[in-house]
Design a protein around this nucleic acid. Structure first.
Lengths: 138, 138
DNA sequence: CAGAGCAATGCAATAAGGTTGCGTGACAAT
DNA sequence: ATTGTCACGCAACCTTATTGCATTGCTCTG
């Protein structure tokens, strides 16, 4: 979480015309700097303690509402968030052992899907489940 | 939940060499007869009351372990289960309004995915999110 | 520059969904 | 019939996330 990242975060937040608070900058910077989607717990551990659980949840929700972050659901009942740098059209990998998520930038989710009549698609989520390299070698 | 479905359920369970109990038969039959993945709550409502919450959870876990059912995660923190009639290689639709899941039999999940080195894929889950026909017309 | 107004935070309590421990009852094999 | 194991029910508990409410602190107007 270097200064450049924090500056980028601050700039992105300023575009929303909402308040630029330390919590928002810290959390968005954490997401921007991460190589993978982070859970609420990941973020709490990454950031200095002293930031309330609820605040983290609220900031994450706010970021999602402002389209600065994307919320995705794993099969462990935990939300993961990733910074919405570009339109978020790629798949994810979920390691069943360590629980970490990885972005599969190469696998696009904008594939054409044949839906039943009158169904409206909003977004497509693709999750590959398996074992990641770290866990395999361990 | 007709008798044929129950007979099929009983037969599938007998193949596991485990005990054929009413709870197992009822729940598997419910899954077999359903057009869509069912949540734990769906099942409880479908079945006559008197069956314990925990028993339902345990039977569902057991069915999953025996590969008679598949567990899938929505973004509402609720497990959904579907009978594993055939290998379960199709996508699902999740209505963001009513929360129901639908099977998209036509959309296959056995697409080739390019994984990073040393990653091992186990299964692929594709979920389309949007509004279903029922909710749209309402 | 003071003060009003509102957005953001922290703390505590609560909700929802799922899981664990343990005693009891039922079935199967001997 | 006896014994061992498997399944069930009940109660308690855990985790993750959300809500209510009081307080803080920024911002903007006058």
């Amino acid at each position: 979480m270097n200064d450049t990242t924090r500056a980028t975060a601050r700039e992105l937040i300023s575009k929303t015309r909402a308040r630029i608070t330390p919590a928002r900058v810290d959390i968005l910077a954490a997401l921007l700097g991460a190589q993978r989607p982070l859970s609420h717990l990941d973020i709490q551990e990454l950031l200095a303690p002293g930031l309330d659980r609820v605040t983290v949840y609220r900031v994450l929700d706010w970021l999602t509402a402002e389209n600065l972050a994307h919320k995705l659901s794993g099969d462990d009942r935990v939300w993961r968030f990733s910074a919405a740098k570009a339109p978020h059209h790629h798949a994810h990998f979920h390691c069943q052992q360590c629980g970490r998520f990885y972005c599969l930038e190469d696998v696009k989710t904008d594939l054409p899907v044949a839906l039943p009549k009158s169904f409206i698609a909003d977004s497509v989520e693709i999750t590959v489940k398996g074992i990641c390299a770290d866990c395999k070698s361990a």
